[in-house]
Design a binder for these strands. Structure first.
Lengths: 100, 100
DNA sequence: CGCGATAATGCGCTTATTAGCATAAGCGGG
DNA sequence: CCCGCTTATGCTAATAAGCGCATTATCGCG
């Protein structure tokens, strides 16, 4: 990790579309961009760019499968990063429950 | 919490000066702006604004004491928020250890 | 009441982030 | 080889974030 690795991680997490994607990917399964688009109500280019950001941060990995690109949570993520994201996703879930 | 409370929290956390201040304040003690300035190598206006951001996010509280303003961690913070920040500070500590 | 010390704020500037639109790139099928 | 589907990317405009500088505000002290 660089000097401000945590800071850049926080930057990546400070976007609702990226957080939503992370929440969906956190089930460990693969999800294509089109599915994420639909479920997060994002346009194609927007979704693609946000996924690129998550990938560039090392939080997710992707795989080409025919015309689809399947993203999934990076299984090799450091425990400290996982701890942060788990806590964030937990807070998001609570927030969603309250809103309902 | 609003719809994107978590997102805005992440935004507040995505700055090295604010993260540094949070780390220092996380000991539960009071710290004046001047001390934070010194320890984080920040100018006065910069430090003041960042503390205002942390305060506005509800993460810290302040108290006037003569010519000083003492900031401290907000003791009434929700457990979910605390969990996030604890994890972030833990990651920062690990990062600092590696850098040394 | 004026002074020194500490902190906050108005202002202008620069840089970073994000979005949409259009276009290109990768893939399988016919 | 072209077509349709899916995803990535170049470009540009709009917005937000952050900083420094200067100024203002607040306080205790003499």
């Amino acid at each position: 990790m660089g000097t401000d690795a945590v800071t850049s991680l926080m930057s990546v997490l400070s976007d609702p579309t990226r957080l939503g994607a992370l929440r969906l990917l956190w089930d460990g399964q693969e999800h294509c961009v089109c599915e994420l688009m639909d479920r997060l109500a994002a346009t194609q280019s927007r979704m693609s760019r946000h996924m690129a950001a998550l990938k560039s941060a090392g939080l997710v990995v992707d795989r080409r499968d025919a015309q689809w690109v399947r993203y999934r949570r990076n299984p090799a993520l450091s425990p400290r990063i996982v701890a942060i994201i788990d806590a964030v996703i937990d807070a998001m879930a609570a927030e969603r429950k309250e809103a309902a």
